[in-house]
């Protein structure tokens, strides 16, 4: 059966994900070492140890994402996170930074390393580089590849691949985007945040509700319509005489119907985005995907997606997996 890798922003979400059938749960520490560094989210050291115990007792694994790029002169914070994840019994750590990978490989040679999507390893040469040099065992693929390209990659590498199938969708190559820090000063790479809520401003102007990020208008919607969160790359902008979602519509990813194709492409694990989501959301998504991977393993058709309402009224896309997206 394909492995289901599920998000947990809180200990409660971790338990909910395990109870709903997650094979693996990923989480992070409550600081800038992980790419979902949101207020009120993530784990203390004790919470992680308890989470690992809960998961292990139910045959599930816990991965710890330490996938921001350490600040120059402050790498100890990231080094300590790796050591503490290992102590807590994490199955693997998910890293993106070359310096951190080198450190982990040298200091904790028996710790299993996964390559974060934030490293954007998008071809076999890159993946083999991380596998050969640092002993990385699994690579989370960036969301810029088609299924054919993923299949091709799996022919040329020996390590496992994991791909995103549901949740938020980065339009840009992950870990290579400074759009957020350009207007807010805070970026995924440095601070573990994108389009942070601290820089969001909503204003009623005439009949419109305007949402701004760092002072830049991202959406202008009628007051009566639902206003999407002003994620920078999914805003409505103008260029020449055109106005629209120049980079991407406010959509989220749903590749559930592509699970059989991803299995044929040699993918080991399916990842669900959403450590910032509620435990109820996590439980429902995990349950639905667990049914889907079980169906896939038995060669049955994919169950009808019960996920539409979880995308919160937003449209869903198969993203780069379908070539036409590009």
């Amino acid at each position: 059966m394909m492995e289901l890798v599920c998000p947990a922003g809180t200990p409660a979400a971790l338990r909910a994900a395990v109870d709903a059938g997650a094979h693996t749960v990923y989480c992070g520490f409550a600081d800038e070492t992980n790419a979902r560094n949101f207020p009120g989210l993530n784990f203390s050291r004790d919470e992680l140890a308890a989470g690992v115990a809960y998961a292990t007792a139910r045959d599930a694994k816990v991965l710890v994402a330490i996938n921001t790029f350490p600040r120059a002169g402050a790498a100890q914070l990231w080094h300590r996170a790796i050591a503490d994840a290992k102590t807590a019994g994490a199955y693997a750590v998910i890293l993106a930074d070359v310096g951190l990978l080198a450190y982990a490989a040298e200091t904790h040679p028996d710790l299993r390393l996964h390559l974060s999507v934030q490293a954007a390893a998008a071809n076999p040469d890159a993946i083999n580089f991380y596998a050969t040099v640092f002993g990385v065992k699994r690579v989370v693929l960036p969301r810029v590849l088609t299924i054919d390209e993923i299949a091709q990659i799996n022919h040329e590498i020996d390590v496992e691949t994991e791909v995103f199938v549901f949740g938020g969708l980065c339009v840009m190559a992950e870990g290579r985007c400074s759009l957020s820090s350009y207007i807010t000063g805070q970026s995924p790479n440095m601070n573990g945040v994108c389009s942070p809520a601290s820089h969001v401003d909503y204003a009623e102007e005439g009949r419109d509700l305007v949402s701004r990020l760092g002072g830049f208008t991202i959406h202008r919607t009628p007051k009566t319509a639902p206003a999407p969160y002003p994620t920078l790359c999914k805003g409505c902008f103008s260029s020449g005489d055109q106005t629209g979602h120049i980079f991407e519509d406010p959509v989220s990813l749903d590749a559930s119907h592509l699970i059989p194709a991803l299995a044929r492409a040699g993918v080991t694990a399916l990842k669900i985005e959403g450590r910032q989501r509620s435990r109820a959301y996590v439980a429902q998504v995990v349950r639905t995907f667990r049914a889907a991977v079980e169906a896939q393993a038995m060669g049955l058709p994919m169950p009808d997606s019960a996920l539409a309402r979880l995308t919160e009224g937003q449209a869903a896309t198969a993203g780069a997996y379908a070539k036409t997206w590009r």
Partner: peptide, 24 residues
Amino acid sequence: NVYNEGTLRWLAQRGAVRVCLPPE
């Protein structure tokens, strides 16, 4: 992504002689 001394050191031992840092 050269954000820190660990990465810079690794690149240097690999043969890097000149690095333009990320603009952010």
